[in-house]
Simulated scan of single mutants.
Amino acid sequence: MKDLWISNSYAKINLGLNVLERLENGYHTIETGFCFIEWADRFEVTPSSRNSLTMSDEKIPIDDTNLIVKAIKLLEAEAGLKDQFHIKVEKNIPAGAGLGGGSSNAATTLRMINKIANLGLETSQLIEFGKKLGADVPFFIEGQAGFATGLGTEIEPLDLQTDAWVVTVFPGIPSSTPEAYQYCEPNAEPEFSLKTVLLEEDVEEWQYLVINDLEAAVFPRIELVGNIKDQFYEFGASYASMSGSGSSVFGIYEQDFVAIHAYDSFRKLGFEANLTRPKFSPDLGIYKKQIDTY
């Protein structure tokens, strides 16, 4: 018998995204709201004689460019990790979708290995490690909705988990994050305070007040993304937006039957889609069971 550790790695959506400034090093300062959706990858970790990674999606590389591999190497270099593991990931979150799948996987790796190997790292330490891996990683380690500023790594926990149904659709065409930022036009002084709008205004008002600055860079290059956003409103969404740098688009619905109709309609059109319940709270538990080794 040996131990098998299991956990889920959840996706996020961006509630608005203001690109404020392009820095000399090529990075950008932003502000955005983060919340979770029920789209999740499944992690299975077992002790092994050597580190190895298996992904159900064979198109995703498992070499040193993978954030899971980078997270392991970071723990070895800076946290004294000696144990070795086989990590098996059932990929459900599409890649290149603006849903933070890679960052979520990195955060899940840090959390799981910290627990399994008894590294004793506090959440604050894991967050610092996460910042070295990617802008969204600290959010996924924190595990609660929040408002991100700076490079996206500074997270203020806020109750932004929407109290409505969320339908998320992947067009099937990945979007390049570097290209989206390259072609966007930063705006240092947005017309409305994004944080104030998200906290104080009804969702029905968001379509007039909340924008994703990267849409203007992505829609001309991937026309289908803009078409799907329009389709969300035709299906009765209170608010619809591209998530992050795309290419996924989500719609927020007050009524369950309208959300389910939109979800079913997009599925019938051949798109990958997800339906998230109001006030969804991700289960970030790490569970252990024993398995036969024969």
Rank of each mutant, 00 (worst) to 15 (best):
T108C: 12
T108D: 04
T108P: 00
T108H: 06
M112W: 06
I113F: 11
N114A: 05
A117G: 01
N118E: 12
G120N: 08
L121E: 09
L121S: 06
L126F: 08
I127L: 08
F129R: 05
K132S: 08
A135L: 03
F139Y: 10
E142Y: 04
Q144H: 12
G146V: 06
A148C: 10
G150Q: 02
L151D: 05
G152T: 05
T153N: 12
T153C: 07
E154Q: 14
I155H: 04
E156L: 12
P157L: 10
D159W: 11
D159P: 11
L160M: 03
Q161E: 09
T162G: 00
T162K: 08
D163N: 13
V167F: 10
T168W: 14
P171C: 09
I173G: 05
P174C: 05
T177S: 14
A180Q: 12
Y183I: 10
Y183L: 15
Y183N: 15
E185I: 15
P186K: 12
E189Q: 09
F192D: 09
S193C: 12
E200S: 14
E200M: 14
E200W: 07
I211A: 06
L214D: 07
A217F: 06
A217G: 13
F219N: 03
R221V: 13
R221W: 01
E223F: 03
E223G: 06
K229P: 02
K229Y: 00
F232E: 00
E234D: 08
E234G: 00
